[in-house]
Design a protein around this nucleic acid. Sequence first.
RNA 1: GCGCCCAUAGCUCAAUUGGAUAGAGCAUCUGACUACGGAUCAGAAGGUUGUAGGUUCAAAUCCUGCUGGGCGCACCA
Length: 590
Amino acid sequence: MLIFSAFMIDSPRALIDVRERLAVALRQAVQQFQSSDPNVALSVTPCQDLRFGDYQSSAAMLIAKSTQQNPRELARLIINKLEVSDSCDKVEIAGPGFINFHLRSDFVSEQLSVISADPNTGARKVGTPTTIVIDFSSPNIAKSMHVGHIRSTFLGNALARITRAVGHHVITVNHLGDWGTQFGKLIYGYQHFLDKKMLAASPIAEFERLYKETNTLSEKDPNILQGVRQELVKLQSGDPENLRIWKEISIQSLQEFQQTYQRLDIRFDHELGESFYNPQLPHVVEELKKLGIARESEGAICIFFENDPALAKTAPMIIQKADGGFLYATTDLAAFRYRADQWKANQILYVTDARQQLHFKQLRTAATQWFCALNKPAPELQHIIFGSILGPDKKPIKTRSGEPIKLKDLLDEAESRAMKLVETKNPELTEAEKKQAARVIGLGALKYADLCQNRDLDYTFDWDKLLALQGNTAPYLIYAYVRIQSIFRKEDAKILGGKFQLGTPEETALGKHLIQFGDTLHAILKEYRPHLLTNYLYDLAVKFSKFYENCPVLKAEEPVRSSRLALCHLTARTLKKGLDLLGIETLEKM
RNA sequence: GCGCCCAUAGCUCAAUUGGAUAGAGCAUCUGACUACGGAUCAGAAGGUUGUAGGUUCAAAUCCUGCUGGGCGCACCA
């Protein structure tokens, strides 16, 4: 017995998915006295109210329902067969038949040691990695990025970081809007009204000006309108000069986008615009016709969904116009196939706003039929929807003149507002420190405000709330991190190793929360909801603050002091790692 | 007209997807050792989860009706 326990403590044990381990034990226990109904999912969840225990299961009540048994009696039977003594010191029945698990304190300590030694801070890798393509941001060439792009950009970036951290093979792609009828006006404007100085200073602003100018002139002057049409036709038929101008507009725009992405620390594995798929579009349409998936109707080539009850009554998906032109849907089908064939995608995530739900339902159905007809597996298409950003009037946010707010202006304002706060709260920082703090806090607050809400819903944008430094905000989390860093700046604060000792309620609560970081990341993979991570991190910061308030660290006696330092250290690492997965930086001072 | 979505404290949002006494922050009121950073912490108050039924041992969550709001519906993306 003595030897065994010494072995358990000394040997480095693996990271454990506590929830899954308890669920497995539970299923094994149930199987010993009855065949379980496969329709009943026997799961274990963290307790909402920690007075009941650490984890709970409603398995007994669920089984009792289908087998007409007494739930409490059944729970007793399950507990008798349950083998969880390595992680729990108490398992009890409560209420109508809940099974409550209480973790052993030494088990929690041991897990904390394992996580502390883990370079990935407890973010376990998935058992079977898959290839996930994430399509996000997708601004239009020759136009500024604006508020309409921020949710896609922030959500996509966070999801890419999270899925990568748990070991999936992730490919990020920026599906740029670089083709369309607006290029007729742009090229005409470029040829007649280009201001080279402005182009050099701010290319996109110049493109926007060219577009507007040509647009207003072509409304008044039929000759100009005719010219615009001609330029578009020339471009589409491959005229070298117009292609050169189009290419230049694309490159210049992309370079300007790049500055924004750099500022936000966002990278793409591929920047493939719609134009990239142009050569493939005729083949796609031909193939779909040949396979009997698409057919002609009123001059256009369409895909109908008679066999799909959810889509039967919807308008068909048009993949070629009566005039021979191709559409958004055609490009999406071509891109879908490209990602499947070239990148071997198992799953494709489209981070696009909720209004496009019908389009993506149709795309999923069409693509599935297509791949089925070709006898190859189709990647799983996931539409990661999000709501609109509303202004104080509860309508989609706009500038006073009714234009969309430019992303750059938003980022600038975030930083300048954060700078004002830093100057009032901590004037003794150096200028460089203030600037750095303003940047990290401003941009972090903006990203966090977006990510911390359930993405399905619209949300109300409010500067004061997102930069408010209390509550579920980036500044509050960063502040918790900064306080910890401040401890480690003291001369005598060194991490001495040693064991975690969870003596006080605050230490226990913090420790138990810290070991759930990995579980939280894995929970996000189910529905790709990053706000589960922000909720976790906010909880962590709150639990840390309570600990910090009640448990002196540096003044404590050994070995408690070392244990508390280690708790501080792991909390800081978890905060930093979690924020990093959301695309948010941390600070040493603020 | 057809279809999808939403409604939770005065405000902004949660609720581990059907679980136990629905939780936070703001705003309001009260308190905290000249503080390991007070950008913090403790407490009070605030709710018939839009409404009326139904299913269930258990409903904010599922089903039906109603009210109020958002969005999408053949050649835009």
